Computed example of a mutant assay.
Amino acid sequence: MEAIIFVELLSNIGVVQVHTNGEIISVTNSDKFKSDIGNQITIAYNGQSKIYKLPFEVILNEDVVNNLNVNNKTLRCKYLINRLVKPDIDDLITKRDSCSKSHLIKALENDGNGFLTVNCFNCLVELFRIDKNFPKILELPDENWREMMDLWHCHKPDIKKDNEKNIGLDQIFSNKILPKYDNLLIGDSYYLINTNLFTKDLKITNNKVYCYNCDKLLGSVYNLNDEHTTCKILKQKVVITNSNLKIDIKYEIYDYLTLTILKSIKNFGSRFFTVKSKKQTNFGQVLLIWCFDYGVRIGINDVKLENRLKIMYQKLDENNLNDKQTLQNLKLKHNFEEIILEDEDLEKSGAFEMVIDYIEKINNNVVFDKSANIKESWKLSYI
């Protein structure tokens, strides 16, 4: 195992916490004109020392120096800026969605040729282009908008149209939101686009949409009529590049999980989640997540991560009577939301295993003693 340094910024109180599996030797600054500010930390591990650049600049004072005792593995010091405001949850949702409208528009504006290519994740062949000639690139409403409408209206109103009968909300709910002939609609985890905008005709079989080059699943048919077919292309199945191939925008399964949790917190106030898969091989397996905080900033060695969720988690098996009872007891005390990572429509093969691996990898890099866990059952991680 190599030396690891984990840094967490507690922005609300302006404190930086440093944890390592080695020994903290010193905190210094590479700029001699800023002797009261630290941005470098020296760690000793297995008889060798290494200097890391801190992701956050800290204030150096007597407390910091006095805390550097023999075999010191933790350090708590003041952040250079005393307090940061927690990000608005809507703003955080936009920042965590790498394929959101705002990210794509920014990438378009920064590209000299003015276009992005949406490519098959598997073979990288071009599927369609997003360019400045699109009349409209629009974001779809939250996928929970029907439930929210129910909360807003105790008596559902009728909507009147000129020279027509009243249309009830129930009828509107049943209608699909479709893109116009030359528009692109961006959903939580997918794009809605008409077949006329594809670079080359994709393969459509049994209402599933496949890459014309490698036959990998890309999505499904969303709406079929005589004029044109609307396809639902999953963000996870494509990768986006600019005209110079210098940027690489991907939507990972962790993004889907994070955004689903954030939207549940926003809409329902839920902090406990059961993550499951409908794959038969994962029958009964449950990832239990308790979301402590959001908008968290951390650093692992030289990597800085922003806008993270701080979570505690457990792996449970509903086929095990003790695990099943644990889950039932928690559900009696807390409001739970269920997240399905794989279903008939998304077909995210291996998604459940990928999420478990990712969360446990982070846990291995941020936990160096049992005090970070709760009763040795809940484990700490960030997504």
Rank of each mutant, 00 (worst) to 15 (best):
S243E: 00
N244M: 13
C214G: 07
C231N: 14
L218A: 10
K232H: 01
E227W: 05
N242A: 04
I253M: 03
T230I: 08
Y254V: 15
V239T: 12
Y251T: 06
K235A: 09
D215L: 12
N225G: 00
Y251F: 14
N225T: 08
K250Y: 09
I233V: 13
S243L: 06
Y251N: 06
D226G: 01
I233T: 05
L245D: 15
V221S: 02
G219K: 00
D226S: 07
K232S: 06
Y210H: 12
V209I: 12
N242L: 02
S243I: 05
I249A: 12
L245S: 15
T241I: 11
L217Q: 12
L245Q: 14
C214Y: 01
K250M: 07
V239N: 07
V221L: 04
K235F: 06
K250G: 02
Q236H: 14
D255C: 08
E227C: 08
L245W: 05
L224K: 12
K250S: 06
K232P: 00
Q236L: 13
C211L: 03
I247R: 11
C231W: 08
N244R: 12
L234F: 14
T229F: 03
T241P: 02
K246Y: 01
I247Y: 08
V238N: 03
Y210E: 14
V238K: 04
C231D: 06
L217T: 10
L224T: 05
I240H: 01
L224I: 04
V221D: 01
L217K: 15
I253K: 03
H228P: 01
L245E: 15
Y212H: 15
T229V: 04
K216H: 10
T229R: 09
G219R: 00
E227A: 07
Y251K: 03
D215C: 10
D226I: 00
L217Y: 14
N242V: 02
D255T: 09
K250L: 07
K246F: 04
K237A: 01
V221H: 02
K235E: 12
K246L: 10
C214N: 05
V238Y: 03
I233Q: 00
E252D: 08
Y254L: 13
K237S: 12
C211A: 06
N225Y: 00
N213L: 03
V238F: 04
Y222K: 01
V209C: 13
I233P: 02
I247V: 07
T230W: 10
S243F: 00
N242E: 01
I247P: 03
K235C: 08
N223Y: 15
V239K: 04
Q236D: 09
V239C: 13
E227S: 08
E252P: 00
D215F: 13
H228N: 13
